[in-house]
């Protein structure tokens, strides 16, 4: 059974139809990269999976939990971590406090346990020495790695990435992608909206191309990048691949 099931999902912003009959299954451990021009609905798509964006029609089931029932939203958010383009770290808290806050108040872990796990995660994203600093004292790449550690601290089964490297200086993109690659290798289920085609080729099990609120084409990265079937995919790739 798929860990994420989307059935005929439709969403409107006012009169703007931003998601049109989306059907998508993601298997446990699968890494799915979503590409497409801006305004194609790809960010909105992944934001519906943890109910940051409500949908008006259709059904989304995450790990067996139907999120169209508002009562289930908290349960789903515990299972789904999210990393944002603009990091969204809590500026008034240290790195360690950023990571331990939700485990302590949502999972009700004691401080010692939360801090121990936070330090392990910081080790994993290679910034354990920054634990006592405030976000504003870190580079963009470091901040985004803290954001990844913060999401992982809730021990989610699924991780969503909404253009995680788009706000970074070029020289910092690599360190964030490395952390994401390591996560993918560890077997995490991931949905990634990105323009990093190298990352998609290397890590993705599947690439989805979206345009104007629809899934136009999907397949293995080699197939989609080297031999796109749909002319809109071809046009998009021709624009970004050089």
């Amino acid at each position: 059974m798929a860990i994420i099931e989307m059935r005929d999902v439709n969403k409107w912003f006012g009169s703007l139809h931003v998601l049109k009959d989306i059907n998508l299954d993601v298997q446990k451990g699968e890494v799915v990269v979503v590409i497409g021009p801006s305004g194609s609905g790809k960010s909105t798509l992944i934001r519906t999976i943890n109910a940051l964006e409500p949908i008006q029609k259709g059904k989304i089931v995450v790990d067996g939990i139907d999120i169209s029932n508002p009562r289930n939203i908290d349960a789903v958010r515990k299972e789904v971590g999210m990393v944002f383009q603009s990091f969204n770290l809590f500026p008034h808290m240290t790195v360690l406090e950023n990571i331990t806050l939700a485990p302590r108040i949502v999972r009700k872990w004691p401080r010692e346990k939360a801090e121990q796990i936070a330090m392990e995660l910081l080790e994993r994203v290679d910034i354990a020495d920054q634990a006592e600093k405030y976000p504003a004292q870190l580079s963009g790449g470091q901040q985004q790695r803290v954001a990844i550690a913060r999401a992982l601290a809730m021990q989610p089964k699924i991780m969503l990435f909404d253009e995680p490297t788009s706000a970074l200086d070029p020289e910092m993109v690599g360190e964030v992608l490395d952390a994401m690659k390591e996560l993918a290798r560890s077997g995490m289920t991931m949905l990634v909206v990105t323009h990093e085609m190298g990352f998609a080729r290397e890590v993705a099990d599947r690439v989805i191309f979206m345009d104007m609120g629809e899934i136009i084409e999907e397949g293995e990265p080699d197939q989609v990048f080297s031999n796109p079937q749909h002319e809109r995919t071809q046009a998009f790739l021709a624009r970004i691949l050089h």
């Binding site: 943890n50 940051l52 908290d74 958010r77 515990k78 789904v80 971590g81 999210m82 944002f84 603009s86 969204n88 770290l89 809590f90 806050l101 939700a102 108040i105 949502v106 954001a147 913060r150 999401a151 809730m154």
Partner: peptide
Amino acid sequence: GQWEAAMSLGMRPFQVMRY
């Protein structure tokens, strides 16, 4: 974005406000 980050971590609205 602060709201969204906190909500995505499973915090309830009151907790988001408070912390």
